[in-house]
Design a protein around this nucleic acid. Structure first.
Length: 379
RNA sequence: GGGAAGAUACCAAAGUGGCCAACUGGGGCAGACUGUAAAUCUGCUGUCUGACGACUUCGGAGGUUCGAAUCCUCCUCUUCCCA
């Protein structure tokens, strides 16, 4: 994987660049649709490519490990071939599941033991077997195994959690260096900077990550944000961490976020984002647009036969009416979630595409400040 | 013409003397969702009130009772069966 930094904004830390993988080129800043179990829920790959214009999608190690399982993935020739996606893929390690499934997991010195949410069976992730698993899945970018610390954790807990994440990173990196990709294309790994909302811990996390063999690490992720802490804290952490990271590598803010979060993240130097919001909230009836958010279940759309989003980037925006989409949601039709997911993803990709254009143009901050107030409107 | 069943809030549908402003579902309204255990979840949904609470309701009119959506009488309407 290579990263080319093309331009840094004069008025902010915003930047744009190009990530090159064996499965294609990614123009940053970028939003990556989440495809947890090998599917971006409700959206065809064809539409993901041609309409949404996605450049890279995610998969999840925890979920894919449990189902379909490593035997199937190995026999399939890796996740790309299994799901029929020719572009780049990034896999999360399962660190977030270690956090979100905490009632059914146990942290040990070796790793993390958890009960499957599917059948209750017991499994253990260690940094070592997590590398092996992600080799079998075969993503272009693999994430280090970490513990995602809750946003309201006290310092003691956060420090202890960070120590665990750091120890896991050492072991993960060592294993990654000692193993090879299985399917003929190269893989890179991103360490994850944790430290909750504590500047001291965040700094410590960066120092530690940078002390390792940097050739191994294609980029750096910032994790443990948008997990319950105030949004200002998240921005503070970005302002602290991004300047400490090498400018020649992409920075990935994990799990974020709202359209505003993304623009504010870009302004603070973030290059890559992912979030379930466009798909999950879409399935739940929420549409993101340049003029604000819409709850498509609301009665006010009942006889609104105008296009879903006249300014939208997706063909569904002009193809279908608001009244029709509302009807589909009220009727519980799966098509509703499909249309909404496609619209939202197309919007998110349009958002980062325009951000990139304005960074290149040189007026990013002015543009951002003009669109942000509208994005949170309720239509 | 004869017989039977029924009428409850926006719809459907429980409730058959006090625990009923009235179960439940739908619909409606609002909210939540941030590295997906989510096509999910949470409130509210007679009127007035910020709330406590007050007031008016269960086809209509009358009656029994301390007390009625629930019991009685008549009326109106609906559905079904037989002629």
């Amino acid at each position: 994987m290579k990263f080319l930094l093309e331009k840094t904004d004069a008025a902010s830390l915003a930047r744009c660049g190009t990530v090159t993988t064996d499965h294609g080129v990614i123009q940053t800043p970028i939003f990556m649709p989440v495809g947890t179990v090998g599917s971006v829920k409700g959206v065809y790959h064809r539409d993901l490519v041609e309409d949404v214009r996605a450049q890279i999608i995610l998969g999840n190690t925890y979920h894919l490990y449990l189902r379909p399982g490593l035997d199937v993935l190995r026999k399939a020739g890796g996740l790309h071939r299994f799901e029929g996606w020719d572009g780049p893929i990034l896999t999360d390690s399962g660190g977030f599941q270690v956090f979100s499934l905490s009632p059914i997991r146990k942290l040990t010195p070796q790793g993390c033991t958890f009960s499957s949410h599917i059948d209750g069976s017991s499994h253990t992730f260690t940094p070592e077997n997590n590398v092996d698993t992600q080799r079998i899945i075969g993503a272009d970018i693999v994430m280090a195994l970490d513990e995602c610390c809750p946003g309201d954790a006290d310092f003691r807990y956060a420090e202890k959690s960070l120590r665990l994440t750091q120890e896991w990173l050492d072991r993960f990196s060592a294993r990654f260096e000692a193993t090879e990709p299985l399917y003929g294309h190269s893989q890179t790994m991103f360490p994850i900077i944790q430290g909750c909302v504590y500047p001291e811990l965040r700094k410590r996390a960066v120092d530690h990550a940078l002390s390792l063999d940097c050739d191994l690490h294609g980029g750096y992720a910032i994790g443990g944000l948008a997990v319950g802490e105030p949004v200002e804290k998240m921005y503070e952490m970005l302002e602290l961490v991004c300047p400490l990271l090498p400018s020649g590598k992409p920075r990935y803010l994990m799990g974020v976020g709202t359209p505003v979060n993304i623009l504010e993240g870009i302004a603070r130097g973030i290059d890559m984002f992912d979030c379930v919001m466009p798909t999950r909230n879409g399935r739940n009836g929420m549409l993101f647009t340049w003029n604000g958010i819409m709850n498509m279940r609301n009665e006010k759309w009942k006889e609104d036969f105008s296009p879903i989003d006249p300014e939208g980037a997706s063909f569904v925006d002009r193809k279908y009416s608001r009244a029709y989409l509302r009807h589909l949601f009220i009727s519980g039709e799966m098509f509703a979630g499909m249309i909404a997911s496609e619209h939202n993803l197309a919007f998110y990709l349009d958002l980062v595409r325009q951000a990139r254009a304005h960074i290149l143009e040189g007026d990013f901050i002015r543009w951002k400040d003009s669109v942000v107030p509208k994005l949170a409107n309720r239509l």
